[in-house]
Every structure is written in structure tokens, then in C-alpha cells.
């Protein structure tokens, strides 16, 4: 494997931020580190980037231990959550800044910087000051600045969290396209599971300083390894548990019918979201969420009695 995090650990006075973390990243893949706030994902990223020294463990890149290499010498490049653009430099100056330390001549720096600028679609912003850019544009400058360094590993720390919803969708596609085109090994930290699912080659789900599961989006979604993963990714219903085995069922895996099914229930709430409607159905031991795609929607109303069924192979046993 290309990048290996081996038994990484970091403790602070009151808390263990990262606990014996083990992760292997393949060359050219985009691996998301997904988890709730405070789970240790940013700390992990910072240890890979060299900004935080781990208490124990190693960071190994292409077979070489880079754990004690200082940040400015590591072949990693980071896009920070706040973008960390230099406020007193304009766009092209920001992008070309790191190239100075690669001993390139001024002309060469400019050529590479402009090439990257074009790649992120900001060619006409070359001499603009940072303050004149919108959030999405600043993000792209931060990305260009990192990519122009031709890093072996690209580190992204919640790059889209400062953008509004629509822009987030657009930018995550652009980031993924760029990453695939350039083939750069990427670690992508986020708390947004939909984001992780949509663009990752693999996802590492993190909680309380530990990795709970690593797998493809499909695996993590359909075969969660723990209750935490099942609940964190997508929505899930837990049914049974006292007398029978606990079943975990995704809302879209439940069929709802007026006529027949194994479990009867009453509709208590209805949430129309466009492509589908989420029905909250009260059954004997709680409330179950059912997603019905709009084309199949029979137009149920509150207090309607319905029947739910879920087939064996669609349920997840956790």
C-alpha cells in the first residue's frame, strides 16, 4: 500500500484524541475519514501532514517512515478548513508560493501556477486579491495551491463545510473529477456522510479516536460492522431486540402496502422530500421510517393504517 498509518495515537490532558489507529491507503484512491465532531479525524489528518507529532505510532509513505519529517518537508499538501489563503497576496501569488521552496525559477513557477489556475477554472482571477473572491472561488484557489505542489498525498480537511448546500454539491463533484484526473492519493476528512458516500473509493468511519470500519461506500452502507456505523451512515431502523434478534433495516428496504404485510402500523408523520416521501409509521415497538419513491406513492395520509414488510436478505444484522 502507498500510505500506511500504523498504531497512531495522540493524547491530550483530558482526552484521547486518536487511539491506536491503523489505516492503509492505496495509491490514487480517495479515502474519506468520516465521523462526528470530535472523533479525532482532523487530528489524524494533521499527524499525516506533520503539524501534530503523534505520541506513538508511525506514518509510512511508499515504505519510508516519515513520522519525524517536519511539515515543510513532507510531500503532502493540505487544504485547510479555513482555506488558509494568505490575505496580503493575490490569487496567483498564493498559488505559486510553495513553488519557491522547490527551487524553481520565477518563470517556471508562473507557468505551473497558471496551468493549475486554468485547471480549477479561475484563469481570469489571476491577479485578484483574495478578499474579492467568493467562498467557492477561495476554495478552488486553496485546492490549486495544494495541487500545484504535485504532492504524493493530498489532505483535505472538511473543505466544503463553509459553503452553502448547492455549492457543496457542485464543488464535491469538481474535487472528485480533479482528483481522478490527476490520480493523486487523497485523504478526505468530513462529517457529512452523504458527501463521503458520493465521492469516495473507500470510507474509514471513525468514532472516539478509533476506526470502526473501512470499506467501499457500498460495503459501509449495506454491511455496517457496528451499530455506530449503521446509525451514522444513512438512516436506519432498529426493530425487535427484546424477544427476537435485533434487525437493522434501511428505510428504503421496507415495502409499505394498504393490503398485506407482516407488520401493521399507523402513519404518524409524512415528510415529502421530492424524489421520495419519508413516512413515520408507528408499529408495536416504536416508530419506523419508511422511504417510498414518489412514482410508487399511493398517497397515504396521516392516521392511515398500513402494512410493512421487509424481506430477509435486505435486512442488516448488526
Amino acid at each position: 500500500m502507498y500510505l500506511q498509518l500504523k498504531e497512531l495515537g495522540k493524547r491530550y490532558p483530558n482526552i484521547t484524541a486518536v487511539d491506536n489507529l491503523h489505516l492503509e491507503v492505496n495509491q490514487g484512491e480517495l479515502l474519506s475519514i468520516l465521523g462526528p465532531s470530535g472523533c479525532g479525524k482532523t487530528t489524524t489528518l494533521r499527524m499525516v501532514g506533520g503539524f501534530i507529532a503523534p505520541d506513538n505510532g508511525k506514518v509510512i509513505l511508499e515504505g519510508n517512515d516519515i513520522s519525524s519529517v517536519p511539515a515543510n518537508l513532507r510531500p503532502t499538501a493540505t487544504v485547510f478548513q479555513s482555506y488558509a489563503l494568505f490575505p496580503h497576496m493575490n490569487v496567483i501569488q498564493n498559488i505559486c508560493y510553495g513553488l519557491k521552496f522547490k527551487r524553481l525559477g520565477k518563470k517556471e513557477r508562473l507557468v505551473q501556477g497558471e496551468h493549475m489556475l486554468e485547471l480549477v477554472g479561475l484563469k481570469q482571477y489571476k491577479n485578484k486579491s483574495i478578499q474579492q473572491l467568493s467562498g467557492g472561488e477561495q476554495q478552488r484557489v486553496a485546492l490549486a495551491r495544494a495541487l500545484v505542489m504535485n504532492p504524493k498525498v493530498l489532505l483535505l480537511d472538511e473543505p466544503l463545510s463553509n459553503l452553502d448546500a448547492k455549492l457543496r454539491l457542485k464543488m464535491r463533484k469538481e474535487i472528485r473529477d480533479l482528483q481522478t484526473e490527476l490520480g493523486i492519493t487523497t485523504l478526505y476528512v468530513t462529517h457529512d456522510q452523504e458527501e463521503a458516500l458520493s465521492i469516495s473509493d473507500r470510507i474509514a468511519v471513525m468514532n472516539n479516536g478509533r476506526i470502526e470500519q473501512v470499506g467501499t461506500p457500498n460495503t459501509v452502507y449495506n454491511s455496517p460492522a457496528s451499530r455506530f456505523v449503521a446509525e451514522f451512515i444513512g438512516r436506519i431502523n432498529f426493530i425487535g431486540g427484546e424477544k427476537q434478534a435485533l434487525l437493522a433495516v434501511r428505510p428504503e428496504q421496507i415495502q409499505m402496502s394498504d393490503v398485506s404485510g407482516s407488520t401493521p402500523g399507523t402513519i404518524t408523520q409524512k415528510q415529502f422530500t421530492g424524489a421520495y416521501t419519508t413516512y413515520l409509521v408507528r408499529v408495536s415497538d416504536g416508530i419506523v421510517e419508511v422511504d417510498v419513491p414518489s412514482p410508487e406513492d399511493k398517497g397515504w395520509k396521516l392516521d392511515d393504517v398500513v402494512f410493512l414488510s421487509f424481506s430477509g436478505e435486505n435486512t442488516l444484522v448488526v
Binding site: 508560493y97 495551491r145 495544494a146
Partner: peptide
């Protein structure tokens, strides 16, 4: 924001360059 200094270091700046290029202008 300390992340601005991290940004400089991330791009390869040593101690003096970070101070000169990022801190001092601000």
C-alpha cells in the same frame, strides 16, 4: 487564524520564511 501559518509550512516554508512571508505582513 493559525491555519494560515500551517498553510505556509505545508507548502514548504521554513521558520524564517513563515515569519517573513505570512506573519510580518499581517
Amino acid at each position: 487564524n493559525p491555519e494560515t501559518e500551517y498553510g505556509a509550512r505545508d507548502l514548504g516554508a521554513d521558520e524564517i520564511s513563515t515569519f517573513k512571508d505570512v506573519i510580518l505582513p499581517s
